[in-house]
Design a protein around this nucleic acid. Structure first.
Lengths: 228, 228
DNA sequence: ACCTGTGAACACGTTCACAGCG
DNA sequence: CGCTGTGAACGTGTTCACAGGT
């Protein structure tokens, strides 16, 4: 009903919109009412023209000759990113990383809410993390049903990640964020995003090594490289 | 001296090489001696042709009609990725996320070693995490000098990330992995990679919402999208 | 017959330069 | 005159199809 233009938004742009939203939140305290694309871009670490192109996917939302209304843009981004209704997520695997995520206040403040925490270790079950009590992994299906969670986060060891994933999908979860270092197989219609922390470090080490070892030979790093 | 061909390797490829290496490590136990690009690709979650192209950057390292020698390829990848000499890293900010990283055995087994842990909270200082004693952030420069660390990992709150970054750079660190949700400014010659956990979740939520809300309108997701 | 290695085609994302509006 | 919005150019990364060995 409030949808003005049904344009398609590239995924790379969506990721940056989330960054712009965070920068705007910090800027709102400054008492200013408007920002230019140049200011926002430098705060977000991107190219000004790219930022304007990103925002253009949402339809015109700035004022020519002036800039973008901080509060107006913040509201528009929040609307587009779906931050209105808070989305229930379930998190499976409450080790160090899982605890860190469950406890991260940045999620809650941005419309996310962990509605269920699950672990297979009896010593973890029953403990409280980030305001929630950890439940046994056997109750996975029940928790998904209770909370109507559409998003699942997997922070288990690699060996059990696929079976946890299968159970999440069977229970109705259609979006999964996977921190386990394995490629998950899912049926069509389910979306998986993978975050691999050790790969990030290894890429960094490679670039570092390459700079030292062979000065003339430098890897091509434009699109995703450097400070993004 | 062992460098056979000084080709340039795209960054996207480097990231996948690290994944192949991990898959190979798991495969080595199986008693087999060779794998085909198809098998490796499906285990790594990528396209077979893309995998072959990735490996071709290292020069020919397979046998036509047969496949790739598991141990041979593993050694080659290890060599290229620089896993020979273990690289000392310093980690600043020992909160939940920092502890998770310091404790993650996946790093140590792949040629990484956290040589120094630093935190500004007096209650954290002196505690032991992942076999190392946490030291006060004031000693950052000294720790970098002692350990000859070339890689720094930042898991501090956003507010102090830039100043920590500045001090790391001044101390000689030239590669930084940033988990704090801010864009860091660094001088030329320093490489920063950013991992933003809340952005990952937000992208997932957007895609999820878009699927429900407007079936005909789907975001363009080819390159980075879907299960990678 | 099989599987690797690779040039060529394609799609995506980024950057540039300027038109358009306030 | 300033800043947004955007088509067009560019570069990178991915996919395809087949040539080249074993």
């Amino acid at each position: 009903m409030s949808e003005s233009r049904p344009r398609i938004v590239p995924e790379a742009t969506v990721a940056r919109l989330a960054v712009y939203l965070r920068v705007l939140a910090g800027l709102a305290d400054g008492g200013r009412s408007h920002v230019s694309s140049g200011e926002l871009a430098s705060a977000a670490g991107v190219n000004p023209a790219g930022l304007r192109k990103d925002l253009s996917y949402l339809g015109p939302c700035g004022v020519r000759g002036v800039g973008y209304s901080i509060s107006g843009l913040r509201d528009r981004l929040t609307e587009v990113l779906g931050g209105e209704r808070s989305r229930p997520c379930v998190l499976v695997g409450i080790g160090r990383l899982g605890s860190a995520l469950a406890d991260y206040t940045g999620f809650a403040s941005r419309g996310f809410q962990f509605a269920g925490l699950l672990d297979s270790d009896p010593r973890q079950v029953g403990t409280e993390v980030g305001g929630l009590v950890v439940r046994p992994v056997e109750e996975l299906e029940a928790v998904v049903a209770e909370t109507h969670a559409a998003i699942g986060v997997i922070t288990t060891p690699a060996e059990v990640a696929q079976s946890v994933c299968d159970r999440l999908v069977a229970a109705g979860v259609r979006s999964i964020l996977n921190f386990a270092p394995v490629a998950l197989t899912v049926p069509a219609g389910v979306d998986v995003r993978k975050v691999d922390l050790s790969v990030e470090l290894q890429v960094l080490a490679f670039l570092d090594q390459q700079r030292d070892g062979s000065p003339p030979v430098v890897a091509a790093l434009r699109a995703t490289g450097g400070a993004r």
